[in-house]
């Protein structure tokens, strides 16, 4: 998952709470000092608003009986657009994914054409991992979450994001842990409606980039299935080379961009 895609996922959920103003507008019990839940969310989103970059993503999909390693070339504008191309293993190489806002296009070299992923396919696992295409493109949950600070200490601020009854999510709650001070994401846990944690994203290997602290590794664990894990790491990140707009077109999806 690229930083922009990750930011999109988190920001969509977090901005939802911020936009509604349902987070406490005044300091309340459990707030981070003088900061409210909304303030915390705003700072996390701002911290995640990255810069354009070229990068290599190494994705490892672990299952009880096998482990599959992928390598992808990523290019992003740091905001709402990104292009990812699988370069390894050979049987998957050539597949490409173009994300623009909430639209996701997929290119398969065997078909020789691009397809817009319909909603029926967006919840499918990305390359068989524990991530779904929805995780990649980011769902817009504006106006559909209530956010509160449920705990805080020197190590983490914990936000509980509770979806509204009509929210198009099957989860009962999202638990978002953030590092105080730098407001970097530490973990995002998905709970079902019975209070059971079903999936957890954990962020690590933080680096400083132009005054921002961002994770270079994240891990997704399926808490319901033993041995189901997906790990993604960024390597060879280039922030200096500009990313042209032509990289976010269907032509680039099929032929690449450099």
């Amino acid at each position: 998952m690229t930083r922009s895609l990750l930011r999109t996922l988190l920001a969509a959920a977090l901005l939802a709470a911020a936009a509604t103003g349902l987070a406490q507008s005044e300091p309340a019990a459990g707030s981070s000092g003088s900061l409210t839940a909304q303030d915390v969310l705003d700072r996390v989103v701002e911290n995640l608003r990255g810069v354009s970059q070229w990068a290599t993503l190494e994705l490892t999909v672990q299952r009880p009986d096998r482990t599959t390693d992928y390598e992808m070339q990523i290019v992003t504008d740091g905001d709402k657009r990104s292009l990812a191309r699988v370069t390894a293993p050979p049987r998957e190489a050539g597949q490409a994914f173009l994300s623009i806002d909430t639209n996701l296009l997929i290119y398969n070299p065997r078909l020789g054409r691009s397809l817009r992923l319909p909603p029926s396919g967006r919840s499918n696992a990305f390359l068989g991992s524990d991530l779904s295409y929805d995780d990649l493109a980011g769902e817009e949950y504006k106006d559909q979450y209530d956010a509160t600070i449920s705990a805080q200490d020197a190590e983490a601020i914990t936000l509980d994001l509770t979806p509204h009854p009509e929210a198009p999510t099957p989860y009962g709650k999202l638990e978002f842990r953030v590092r105080p001070g730098s407001y970097v994401p530490l973990s995002l846990t998905f709970f079902d409606q019975r209070g059971n944690a079903v999936k957890r994203m954990t962020f690590s290997d933080f680096v400083e980039v132009r005054g921002k602290t961002v994770p270079e590794r994240f891990e997704v664990v399926d808490l319901l299935k033993d041995g189901y894990r997906t790990v993604a790491s960024w390597t060879g990140v280039d922030y200096d080379t500009p990313v042209p707009d032509r990289c976010f077109t269907e032509a680039a999806l099929e032929r690449g961009c450099r």
Binding site: P119, R122, P163, A167, P168, G172
Partner: peptide
């Protein structure tokens, strides 16, 4: 009593709802 999410490809684009 639990919520189920439903996704549909609408004529105006993808839509989704949470239904009890």
């Amino acid at each position: 009593g639990e919520r189920v999410a439903i996704d549909v490809s609408a004529m105006a684009g993808p839509q989704a709802l949470g239904l009890r």
